[in-house]
Amino acid sequence: MNTVAHLRAVAAVLLSVIVALMLSAAPAGAHAALSSSDPAADARLAAAPRVVTLTFNEPVQQQFSTVVVTGPQGRNHVVGDPAVAGREVRATLDALDGNGTYTVAYRVVSADGHPVSGKYDFQLSAPTPTTTSASTPAPETTAPSTSDDASGGVTPWPFVAGAAVLVVLIVAAVWLRGRRGAGADTDDDR
């Protein structure tokens, strides 16, 4: 096989390796996503829930996990910090304001350290007792959006750069081997 054929074969193998590396980098960039909730998004409830449970597709970190449940009167109904156990985040609620729309906003940290946030609504359509105790005021910040932050997660560029360096090294090795082989052929012809 001549040097050009070697280079073509090496280039085909390297292209396959680069594609495989880029495809394998995609799962590393995945982050936790809400897979289910109780109450569910857009649910219509006849009784007020005492707990909101969020279940994610992968474990989330306890640290920095936040859940806010805002009622029609604009106050937060979550009591204390949410409890995190693997993929599940549970927030205990105080007495809800009564009928109306409630917004569940969450912000958790994926196992890979990436913050993920979102929100959804549910409806309460039955009278519930109101609380006379001091309520927790709603946070002054806006509710989290339904998308990840703008960092974009893991980028494939380090893999591409590493693959490019690998390609250069292999092409140089094949070229040098070909030159040595060509030199040996020339010496044999003498």
Rank of each mutant, 00 (worst) to 15 (best):
P144T: 01
L7M: 10
V167E: 02
P39R: 07
P115L: 03
A150T: 06
R8W: 02
V116P: 02
Q123T: 14
A41W: 04
N2V: 15
A164K: 09
P82T: 06
V69T: 06
T55L: 00
H114I: 04
S24W: 15
V109Y: 00
T101Q: 14
Q73L: 12
L54Y: 06
T130S: 12
A184K: 09
T53N: 08
E140M: 08
A134E: 15
S24E: 14
D42V: 11
A111F: 07
A182W: 04
T101L: 14
M22Y: 07
L34M: 11
P127C: 05
T155Y: 08
P59M: 09
G118V: 01
P137L: 10
K119P: 05
D121T: 09
Q123N: 08
P156K: 00
P59Q: 05
F159Y: 15
R107A: 01
G181K: 06
T128I: 05
W175N: 08
W157K: 00
G100R: 00
A161T: 11
A184Q: 13
L169N: 11
A111T: 10
G74R: 07
D42P: 04
V13Q: 14
G80Y: 01
T132L: 12
V19L: 10
T155C: 10
T146V: 09
N76P: 04
A150N: 01
A91M: 05
S125T: 10
P127G: 06
P156W: 07
T132M: 09
R50Q: 13
R177S: 09
T186C: 10
A9Y: 05
I170L: 15
P158G: 06
W157P: 02
E58L: 04
L176S: 13
A172E: 07
A28L: 13
N57F: 05
Q73A: 10
A95C: 11
A173N: 02
T128S: 14
G118W: 03
A111Q: 13
V174C: 04
S151V: 15
V4P: 01
R190L: 15
P49N: 03
G152A: 11
T132S: 10
V154G: 01
L54P: 02
P158V: 04
A161N: 01
D185G: 07
L124H: 07
G153D: 00
P156S: 02
L54F: 09
T130W: 12
M22V: 12
T155G: 14
R75N: 13
T66N: 02
V52K: 01
S125Y: 05
P137E: 13
G181Y: 00
G181A: 10
L166R: 06
A30W: 12
G162F: 03
R180G: 00
A164I: 12
P115I: 05
P158I: 04
T3L: 14
V154H: 05
D42H: 12
A85P: 07
A28Q: 11
V52F: 00
V51L: 14
G118F: 03
G71D: 15
Q123A: 14
S133T: 13
S125D: 13
G29Q: 08
R87M: 03
D97G: 07
L176K: 12
D189S: 14
A182M: 03
H6M: 13
Y102N: 06
M1C: 09
L54G: 06
I170K: 12
A32Q: 02
T3K: 10
N76D: 15
S16V: 10
V4G: 03
P39H: 07
D149I: 01
S16T: 15
T131R: 13
A111N: 09
L23H: 04
G86Q: 11
D187Y: 05
F56Q: 00
V69A: 03
